[in-house]
Every structure is written in structure tokens, then in C-alpha cells.
Design a protein around this nucleic acid. Sequence first.
DNA 1: TTTCATGCCTCGCGACGCGAGGTATAGTCG
DNA 2: CGACTATACCTCGCGTCGCGAGGCATGAAA
Lengths: 111, 111
Amino acid sequence: MPERDPTLMSGVPELVLLRLLAQRQMYGYDIARALKLLSRETLSLGEGVLYPALHALEARGLLRSRSRQVDGRTRIYYQATPKGCRRLERLTANWRRMSEGVERILGAHHD
Amino acid sequence: MPERDPTLMSGVPELVLLRLLAQRQMYGYDIARALKLLSRETLSLGEGVLYPALHALEARGLLRSRSRQVDGRTRIYYQATPKGCRRLERLTANWRRMSEGVERILGAHHD
DNA sequence: TTTCATGCCTCGCGACGCGAGGTATAGTCG
DNA sequence: CGACTATACCTCGCGTCGCGAGGCATGAAA
């Protein structure tokens, strides 16, 4: 398996969580699986990241949650609020700008 | 000016520093200017990031330094060691993998 | 002489990723 | 019945890191 760099992950959970939950409501376990599939294993958020992140986003009014009973188990579905969608747009723009900046430097050869 | 997201910067200093210093030796102020130009203002490392990062990389044996007097001012030139170059390759691969993972999620629409 | 560019530095705060550990239910296999 | 796995949620605490704020010194220009 590919080695990971924890330090390159900062801010990424918030970004991808908002992105997923701006499209449809999902619950924790669901999100974890979706991230693995969509990113082809490169972005797997452990539960120690996932749940605190969801709570923090909800506390900031970027997500809204409601719990539902399915087969005797409690699922907590999350969905992005309008405020969360706006935040997503800003975050996405920031990500692209930063990402392109890095790419320019990685691709630069000036000798 | 565009708003920045501090949290998206994690790990980036190490990456871009190694990249620049794998090509040629540079000193602190020089690096700060080069980063601004190359990344078109999107990646400006403050001195509170730059110097501690350089010291940490040197302490880990990824950079080598030597000071030189120019016009009565002391410049400390840094350059990537072979070990630093190997680290750069690994970091670059990690960056690309993570970056592509994020892009896949940002670009995904499944409804 | 004040101001600006150069050139280096550290301290301390806050934020964040993340592993480790915890709880509980439902279904399966022997 | 007991063991194990999958589902589904959670928190605590450690370590790392970006970064603003502040500091010191020199040379040149105003």
C-alpha cells in the first residue's frame, strides 16, 4: 500500500465532507466507504477524523443532521446547509489556487 | 486580495522548499521572493514558517547549509542533500496521489 | 535621521489529523 | 449458546504544524 503523509491532509476533511454532503445526505459509515471508493483508497478518513469533523461542521452551522432508526441501529444523516454550500465554494476556490501554486513550483525548472 | 486558508497549507512548506533547494542553493529571503513569483502570489510563506522549516529540514539531514558574507550581511545558503532529494520524490508522489483523490471527489457528481 | 530593504531569528497560540480505545446491536457460523 | 464480524456511533490525548507578532542588525536612500 502507498505510504501516507498525515501533514498533507490538513483542511481536506472539511473540503471533501462538504462536497459529498452538498450532493446528498449521508451518514458516517456511508461517508467513510464513499471516500475510499471515490478517491480510490487515497483518501481514507479514520473515524477519529470523521466524526469530530462532522460535529465541528454542524456546530458551525455548515451541516444539518437528523437521526433515523434503521434495523434497530441509529444512523445520523448529515447534509450541507446553504451556508455550508457557500463555504464549499470558497474552500474549493482556495484549494484550486493553492494546488495550482504547488504544481507550478513542482513543474518549474529554471537553470 | 484572495482569502487564504491556513489549514490547507500543511506539509506544503516542506514540499516546495525541498523542490526549490533540489535545483540550486538559495537563502531565506531569496526563497520567499521566489515562492511568490513562481506561485503567482498564491504561496507566500511568512518568515515564521520559512526559517523554522529550514532549520527543521536541516536537523533532519534533508538540507545542508553554509553561510556567506555579502556586502556585510550574512546569507545562509541552503541546498538539498541526496537524502532530501529522495524525500522530495516521495513527498511529490504523495502530494499527487492526495491531490488527485481530492480532484476526483470535487469533480464527482453521482445522482 | 528617519525610513526602507535586506537578512536573520524565536515564542506561543490555536488548530488539526489521527491512532487507540470504548459502547452497542444484528447477523452468521459452529 | 458463544464467538466473531459488520454496522454504527463516540471521545481522549498526543504530536505536529502554520503563522502572526515581535525582535535584532546592517546598508542605502530620502
